[in-house]
Design a protein around this nucleic acid. Structure first.
Lengths: 200, 200
DNA sequence: GTCAGCGGATGACAGATGTCATCTGATCAT
DNA sequence: ATGATCAGATGACATCTGTCATCCGCTGAC
């Protein structure tokens, strides 16, 4: 019997998924979590065979939870995501995740994937894998990513500088570098682009 | 027997939901759609009692599909949404939608809501209803919303002007008005804010 | 007719933003 | 210790953006 932890902030999906998987003879859902912190806590407590984690989950995200779980438990992790962006897959794999599944996967296939991962195999959605291989890695430095993240909400240079503890001029330099690398003409376009690619 | 149409672009949720609802004795899923256009087409074809539509669904959105369905069929519509923002509820209700459910609703409760709507009642998530009543309606005009939508990706004034077929100066006027109404200092902040509120 | 009102456009101005060359201080391999 | 390298800062400059007063053409009430 494969013991599962399911974590997703959408009760609707989590509940439906749990019910669906519970129908399978060899699967059982031992814990459900709606937040990334709960996911880690319940994983420690129940030590499930496999944790199915949503990537977009407050307060941090599924990736952080996956890293923590992989670091201290033998539990295998399958990440489920809505925006299946190549950059995210890259990060997930280096965090030791065994499965990477977009939410466009048919529900009936999930049980198979869980069994494959339980048997020690890995599963990565073929479409995402293909685009991850053809696309280059993130060209931005940590600082550049940091200032781009801070500018997501439309903040001014001064506000960003305040937030990341840098001089306004330095912030403009980093933004300028990021914009040049991404080939766009404003920091807002750069932030949007970086978000689309899954880098921030 | 209540006949259902389920539309959601995430196969995972749609499949799990269909399986879950099919378990109920008095419910049956007669059609599934992954796009808003398919949803309308299948609704015309199968004339279900109730259509459960996801709000965030390409190519247009669930709201458009709901409007079309309500305009030509006796089918009742339940909207399911991830970002349960008050502004969206307002638009949904004036489109003749009978149910408004965030994805944070427990899966087990959905069947009850479907039965209530089938019996001629309405269901609106209490939390969203409360905030919709306390919050004011969208203060922005159609044109202001249009230019804000066009600036979502970080476009420059000239690009926006091109996209909405207006003079650059006019675009700046509308943006300026929108920024003043939202109390922010840049169009990007305004666009972000309007998105958060569910207006664009 | 005419006058108010409205969507759209224009032009001028101040301030914010993007670009670039340059400087400082810390780190580090040799 | 010395030269290379790099994160961070600065200042000057051109351009873009936001603000505001104003103007034009159309429509609709009176």
């Amino acid at each position: 019997m494969i013991r599962l932890l399911i974590a997703d902030d959408e009760d609707l999906l989590r509940g439906a998924l749990a019910a669906l998987l519970e129908l399978e003879d060899d699967l059982t859902v031992t814990a459900e979590a709606a937040t990334s912190t709960d996911a880690v806590r319940l994983a420690r407590e129940h030590r499930p065979d496999i944790a199915v984690l949503d990537l977009e989950m407050p307060p941090s995200d599924g990736l952080r939870a996956a890293e923590t779980i992989r670091a201290e438990l033998p539990t295998q992790v399958i990440l489920v995501t809505r925006h299946a962006r190549p950059g995210v897959l890259r990060r997930a794999l280096s965090a030791g995740v065994s499965g990477f599944v977009p939410k466009t996967t048919p529900a009936t296939k999930l049980a198979e994937i869980i069994r494959a991962v339980a048997a020690g195999r890995r599963y990565v959605d073929p479409d995402i894998a293909a685009s991850a291989l053809t696309e280059g890695a993130c060209p931005l430095t940590d600082r550049e990513l940091e200032v781009l993240r801070a500018s997501r909400t439309g903040a001014s240079v001064n506000e960003i500088a305040e937030r990341v503890h840098l001089a306004p001029g330095t912030v403009r330099n980093y933004l300028s570098a990021a914009m040049a690398k991404l080939g766009v003409g404003s920091r807002h376009a750069a932030a949007h682009r970086a978000w689309e690619e899954g880098w921030i």
